[in-house]
Amino acid sequence: MQLNAGCELSFEAQGPTPLILMLRPRSGAGQWIIREEYQIIPAVNVTEFTDMYGNLCQRVVAPEGPFSIHFSATVQTSDLIDVSPGAPYTPVEDLPDDVLHYTLPSRYCQSDQLGDLAAEVTKDMEPGYDQVEAIRRWIHENVTYQYGTSDASTSAVDTADKKVGVCRDFTHLGISLCRALNIPARMVVGYLHQLDPMDLHAWFEAYVDGRWFTFDATQEQPRGNRITVAYGRDAADVAFTTQFGPMSLNDMKVWVEAAEEPAPEKKETDVPTLSSTVGSNDQV
């Protein structure tokens, strides 16, 4: 499905304020960027770099006063996400070098303190994908989604104790429980079609059977039509804006809508394809 997605951020800066922005998705697995538009008012110099996780980041200095950012994109997304029940655990000694650090505790994901809970949640599960799915399901069934119950300092340990939070907290807990089992896990932020209520979203990926799989503890079933913006160890690595000075966010709007895809033009030379022959031995 093609999606039109974007956000508008309105700030008030008390003085010149350096910012790092992380708002641009890039083409990759499950998504292709068809069009994008970036507007900053007032106009300022922008430089872009790629961070250690492969995320596109923009550096700006906001002048004193009102400052707004508008980003929108049209993205071709996958309607489904891959699932693989029974996919085996990847031993630590076989992990790629750039995946190893996703097994370690991080600021919001104190996996070294959640080993007992991880073992309890995944008991009788085969090591690998089935353990991660048991974690995702346990969080979905036992943690209540509720705005205003957590803040920027809430960690996975806090969420495990209070059993309430938002998508960021669900994600931190899922990552921590995976890492407690030596399964690499990373945070993903971006957009999800038909998210209710609509907002920027967070989920996690776990590395099993030699690849990354998507898990979202806020959803009942696996859902596609996602736009990934950034990856990281936890929320500290994937903030959409990081400011270095006094600056307040006055308003934020987020949207994700199905785009109208133009119907392909039929040419006289087009030949109908019979679905019964696709992939068969008599396919021409």
Rank of each mutant, 00 (worst) to 15 (best):
D94Q: 15
E141N: 09
L200F: 13
T171W: 04
V166H: 04
D94E: 15
A29I: 15
D124Y: 10
R137W: 06
P246H: 03
D82R: 12
V164W: 03
L21Q: 07
Q58L: 11
R136A: 11
G190W: 00
D199K: 05
D251W: 02
D270S: 01
V121H: 06
S280R: 08
H201P: 03
D151V: 07
R59A: 13
K123V: 15
S153P: 06
T144K: 10
N4S: 14
Y38C: 02
E12H: 12
D151W: 08
I139Y: 03
Q110Y: 09
T47K: 03
D124N: 11
T149Y: 01
C57Q: 07
Q283F: 12
D116H: 09
Q14P: 01
Q76M: 09
T122W: 01
C57S: 06
S176K: 05
L80M: 15
T103Y: 06
R136F: 04
C178S: 07
L21I: 12
A62R: 03
P272R: 08
R168T: 14
M187Y: 13
V157S: 15
M22Y: 04
N45W: 10
Y53Q: 12
F213V: 09
A236R: 03
W138S: 10
F170L: 04
D282H: 01
C178V: 09
L19M: 15
G224Q: 02
F11C: 07
L114A: 10
A259V: 12
T273N: 12
I41F: 13
W138Q: 01
L95A: 12
G128L: 08
V99Y: 04
D94T: 14
L19Q: 04
K266I: 15
N225Y: 06
A263Y: 11
L173S: 08
L100M: 14
T159F: 07
L173F: 00
A119Y: 07
L200E: 08
S106P: 03
N281A: 15
P96V: 11
T50R: 11
E48T: 13
L100P: 03
P88L: 10
E257Y: 09
T17A: 11
G6N: 01
Y207R: 02
R107W: 12
Q283R: 05
T159S: 08
M198N: 13
T273Y: 10
I135G: 01
D97S: 13
D151E: 01
L200D: 05
K123R: 15
P88I: 11
Q283N: 04
T154Y: 06
P25D: 11
H172A: 10
A118M: 06
A235C: 10
G148A: 11
L274S: 14
I139T: 08
V60Y: 00
F240G: 07
Q2E: 15
G65Y: 06
W255K: 02
I81C: 01
C167D: 05
D196F: 11
E12I: 13
R137A: 14
H172G: 13
